[in-house]
Amino acid sequence: MRAIVVSATGGPEVLTYTEHPDPVLNPGEVLVDIAAGGVNFIDVYQRMGRYPLSLPFVPGNEGAGTVAAVGEDVRGISVGDTVAWANVMGSYAEKAVVPASHLVAVPDGVTADTAAALMLQGMTAHYLTHSTYEVKPGDDVLVHAAAGGVGLLLTQIAKLRGARVIGTVSTEEKEKLARQAGADEVIRYGGFSEAVRELAGSGVHVVYDGVGAATFDGSIASLRPRGMMALYGQASGPVPPIDPQVLNKGGSLFLTRPTLVHYIATRDELAWRASDLFGWVASGQLQVHISHRYPLAEAARAHEDLEARRTTGKLLLIP
């Protein structure tokens, strides 16, 4: 099969499109012909070596496609089914072997492209709004990078739960997308904490921050007493160590650094989040903005565009 292989960590140029051995199917696993693989910042961190992996490796942490073969001891999954997954490496390829326990069935009314676009970012938005901080009607919510892949989904889901959403963006084009997703207020990053205070008085109930170093201090300053800072990513770089006394001074604040693997730790959690997301898409309550589809061979260009912040919404690789 053809795949993207990383043999040495570094820039986008280390993403090599090449022939690679077909994955071996073991008991409890399913072989999938990949229709689309999602591109995420975690792929960038792994490519750079910020999140070290054994070399060489095939990147990609989510995808969707058609079941080509089923291993021993697999029940409830058949050849020809459309399935999707997250948190399993190897979706930058034509084929992948995925543990059956990590797969979800893609229902009629949801395309494989949409499923691939939803699995990592959609379930991230779901756990942030339903579990990390359970958004309630009337809550004020600050969503950074509101026109990004997670940001657009976070905005829509927070609105479904009755929140007022304040989104940050960097351009007029991104502002339009954030407003289309339902953001009540859209502001620029410069001086955003002051703008938030003007809009939300004592501050917001929760900040969803996937940007990291560049926004962290302002995010803390945007919270009301006993507010929640959910730092779920670090697109601008890691946050330096902080003195916990900062949380005291801000009003007994809460700080968490969540990640998806701990919020789909059981089969029931995975099924719940995927079912909600697919149901909202099928009913028209959730729109998935796929801004770019790249041929698999152009994975390096996808990473360049993502890192340069030239994109909005979701990026997919198509084998």
Rank of each mutant, 00 (worst) to 15 (best):
M1N: 07
A3K: 00
A3Y: 03
V5I: 15
A8C: 00
A8S: 12
G10R: 08
G10H: 10
G10I: 15
G11R: 00
P12C: 10
E13H: 05
V14W: 08
L15W: 07
Y17H: 14
Y17A: 06
Y17W: 13
T18Q: 13
E19I: 04
H20Q: 12
H20E: 13
P21Q: 08
P23S: 11
L25H: 11
N26Q: 15
L31A: 06
I34N: 01
I34D: 06
G37Y: 09
G38Y: 12
V39W: 14
I42V: 15
D43Q: 09
F57G: 00
F57E: 08
G65Y: 12
G71L: 09
G71T: 12
V74F: 10
R75P: 00
I77N: 05
S78D: 14
V83D: 02
V83W: 01
N87H: 06
V88Q: 04
M89L: 15
G90K: 03
S91E: 12
E94K: 02
E94F: 03
V104P: 00
V104C: 02
V110H: 00
T111G: 09
T114Q: 14
A115Q: 00
A116E: 13
A117S: 10
A117V: 15
L118I: 06
G122A: 03
M123L: 12
M123S: 01
T124Q: 05
T129Y: 03
T129V: 03
H130N: 04
T132C: 06
T132F: 01
V135Q: 03
G138Y: 04
G138E: 06
D139M: 05
D140L: 11
G148V: 14
L153R: 02
L154G: 00
I157C: 09
I157N: 04
I157V: 10
I157H: 00
A158I: 07
R161I: 01
R161K: 07
I166D: 05
I166L: 11
I166Q: 07
S170A: 14
T171S: 15
K174G: 04
K174Y: 09
K174D: 05
E175H: 00
A181K: 01
A181M: 06
R188Y: 14
R188F: 12
Y189I: 09
Y189M: 07
E194M: 10
E194K: 08
E194V: 15
V196E: 08
E198A: 04
A200V: 08
G201E: 12
G201Q: 07
V204T: 05
V207Q: 07
V207R: 00
G210H: 02
G210M: 07
V211D: 05
A213Y: 08
D217H: 08
S222I: 15
R224M: 15
L231F: 12
Y232W: 12
G233W: 05
S236C: 08
V239L: 05
I242H: 08
V246F: 03
S252R: 13
L253I: 06
F254V: 12
F254L: 11
T256M: 02
P258Q: 04
L260D: 03
H262C: 04
I264N: 01
D268M: 01
E269R: 07
D276V: 05
F278E: 10
G279Q: 09
G279K: 01
V281D: 06
L286C: 13
H292T: 13
R293H: 14
P295Q: 06
P295R: 01
A297E: 15
E298K: 06
A299E: 10
H303R: 02
E304V: 13
D305Y: 04
E307T: 11
E307C: 08
T311P: 02
K314Y: 07
P319W: 14
P319V: 07
